[in-house]
Simulated scan of single mutants.
Amino acid sequence: MRYVRWIALAAVLVLVSSGAIYAQMREPTPTGGVVDTGAPRPVVDGNRIVDARDGLPWVPRGVNWSSFEYACAQGWGMSALDTTGDQDQYDREAEVIADWGVNTVRLPLNQDCWLGTRGAPVSDQFDERTPSDYRADVADFVSSLNRAGIVVVLDLHSRKRMGQPEFGNVAMPDSQSLTFWRSVARDYAHNPSVMFDAFNEPYSRYNPTGSKLVFDLTWKCWRDGGCQAPVEDDQTATQGRVTYTVQGMASVVAEIRDAGAAQPILLGGLDYSNDLSHWLQFAPDDDQLVASFHSYDFKDCASQKCWDEVIAPIADRVPVLTGELGADDPTGGYVSDYLAWADAHDIGSLFWVWADHPSDPMALVRNESGSPTAYGALARRYLREAANS
């Protein structure tokens, strides 16, 4: 584990309703300086995220924008927009998202498409696609979102599936995940309006019948790595006979910092980022960490009792962000109940998912122009009210 190196740049005078207080703001100072993106500059300050531009508390609220994690592995484009070379299309998409009151967008990425490993990105018969193309498309959309006043969370979400066109999640980072983060962090170290999500959803694995635990992810391995996880992703049955050596969250954090990036890093817990029970005990040493909680009604921590007993004490110590929020029936009450609880604890939420997937009850939109589904209407109303409060 390594301590983050920060340079205190200035003492910022912050005015609040109870009077004037002084806050010592620390901004990241990566090699090459910090660019002015026009979007908030999130910095962890105790158990809050603040905007380094003015030192005021800033709560991330927004959506997950899905497709960078799978389109490039399916061979039909880099993202849902397939906009290689068309910045205007990303600009229009960012404007539509911003109109909902969004201040944060989480972008799930594909490790193999970024690195060019395991045959990714996949090209169709008409167009050759390269890792450089993929990285350029991601950069174009990040720039568009930032210009629209939106912070971006870059998330290591998936890899290209072995022998399959779809995407899949392995249980924990592997050695190439460190290469991925070294590259991503180097590319975005200068951008203060970007945060990093170290690994989407860590998990344990059972055999195909569910009768035997073949990989038990412990909190120690979550932090330190070294255990052996099945090579198969979570869309592929496994007996756990062929494994790889897990890289822990401490190594991922160190890789990002060693690449010169000082921005906040999100760390999801066990059980697909739904179990944060020992997050405080095992979090790596770093003063810019955010606990990422994935809240769904079909997971174990789906009651106010769990939120009060597990999530709230963490939020008293470090910022908590609901990196994904959804439900089997997202208009059935669970999402609204969670949002009310999260707001009372200054916990931001990112809705899953901004995608026009007709068969998915959690799809927020019906088309690229942002026409909302019933769930989308709920999300848009909440986001606009939060933005105007």
Rank of each mutant, 00 (worst) to 15 (best):
A327I: 10
R41S: 11
R53Q: 09
D258S: 10
F180R: 14
V142D: 01
Q176D: 15
L109D: 06
D258Q: 12
W279M: 05
S204K: 01
G149S: 05
P208D: 07
R186E: 13
R2D: 08
M25F: 06
W222I: 07
T37I: 13
D337W: 03
V14S: 08
T209L: 14
G62P: 04
D54W: 03
P284C: 12
P372V: 02
V290G: 04
P40T: 00
E385N: 11
T84P: 10
N110K: 02
G348C: 01
F141H: 11
D343N: 11
G19N: 10
G323S: 08
G268P: 08
S389R: 14
W341L: 04
N103R: 06
Y382P: 00
V151F: 02
N274C: 08
N103D: 08
L154Q: 08
R5P: 00
G260E: 11
A52R: 01
R147D: 08
S193C: 03
D328A: 15
A80M: 10
I21L: 15
L270S: 01
W307N: 04
V252S: 08
N207V: 04
A139R: 12
P313Q: 02
G333A: 13
L364D: 00
L213Y: 03
Q89T: 14
Q247E: 14
S369V: 09
D224F: 06
D360E: 12
W65L: 15
Q176I: 11
Q176T: 15
L154N: 04
F141T: 11
S336V: 06
A120E: 10
N367C: 10
A185G: 14
R241C: 06
S277T: 13
V152R: 08
L145N: 07
S183W: 03
A8Y: 07
D140C: 01
D197A: 10
E368R: 11
L266E: 14
Q263M: 13
K299N: 15
S17I: 06
T29Y: 03
H190P: 04
S177H: 02
R41D: 10
